[in-house]
Computed example of a mutant assay.
Amino acid sequence: MIRGLNHITFATRDLAGSFAFYTGVLGARPLARWDEGAYLLLGDVWLCLSLDPQSLPPATSYTHLAFDVDPADFAAMRQKLHDAGAREWKTNRSEGASVYFLDPDGHRLELHEGNWQSRLDHYRQNPPPGMVFYDTVETPIVPDASPQTEK
């Protein structure tokens, strides 16, 4: 059973501009930023910005909506999607179980059983190049080569 919205990911051709818009204009709280993306909170909604210089209309980019699923329900929901003939559009390569699928109109959707905290915990142990963690808007926490602990 779907529990609600998990996160929203928007592809962007200009990460710096999008980051500035969401944090400066909309008041999103920055959680992390790296060379190819950023994690933000809009209220309690987790928003990911993903750098995609060739992004076209959303139907051809990484932009998608993710629905939150209880881990106990994940396998059954995945099977329901399979039984319904939903096409998968991406293979999961990130932390937490996910299935990426298309709805009948081709909208890109995801079922995910993690959250922004588990994703950040994962990246604190394995940060991608250029990732910066934010304690507050004013204080970036820059990772070094060792696993991260907040200072």
Rank of each mutant, 00 (worst) to 15 (best):
T63Q: 11
G106I: 00
P140V: 05
E150L: 14
V132Q: 13
V99Y: 00
T149S: 12
D70S: 11
Y22N: 06
R29Q: 14
H7A: 02
F74T: 03
D135T: 14
L26G: 08
D135K: 13
S50M: 12
L31K: 05
A72S: 10
P57S: 13
A86H: 08
V142I: 14
G4R: 00
L40F: 03
L5P: 09
Q148K: 12
D70R: 04
R78H: 11
S98G: 11
G27Q: 04
T60N: 12
P147Y: 02
N92Y: 00
P140H: 03
L15S: 03
A59K: 14
V69W: 04
A32F: 05
T9N: 09
L111H: 03
S94H: 11
Q117H: 10
S18P: 09
S18C: 12
Y39T: 09
E150H: 11
N126I: 04
V25P: 10
W46E: 05
H122V: 00
L120Y: 05
H122Q: 02
S50L: 12
E138T: 14
H122G: 01
L40E: 13
L109H: 05
L51Q: 03
E95C: 06
L42Y: 05
P143A: 14
R93H: 13
T139S: 10
F67H: 10
G130E: 01
I2P: 12
D68S: 12
P53E: 01
A86G: 07
D73H: 09
A32S: 15
A86F: 05
L26E: 10
G17R: 11
F10K: 13
L5N: 08
S18L: 10
R33T: 06
D14S: 04
G106M: 03
V99A: 07
A38V: 01
E88A: 13
N6K: 05
D83F: 00
L120N: 07
A75Q: 13
P53A: 01
A72C: 04
A145S: 12
A145P: 04
M77P: 05
S18F: 04
N126C: 07
A86T: 00
G43Y: 10
R87M: 11
T136Y: 15
W46A: 10
P140T: 05
G130P: 07
A28Q: 07
H64V: 07
P128D: 03
F133N: 02
L109D: 07
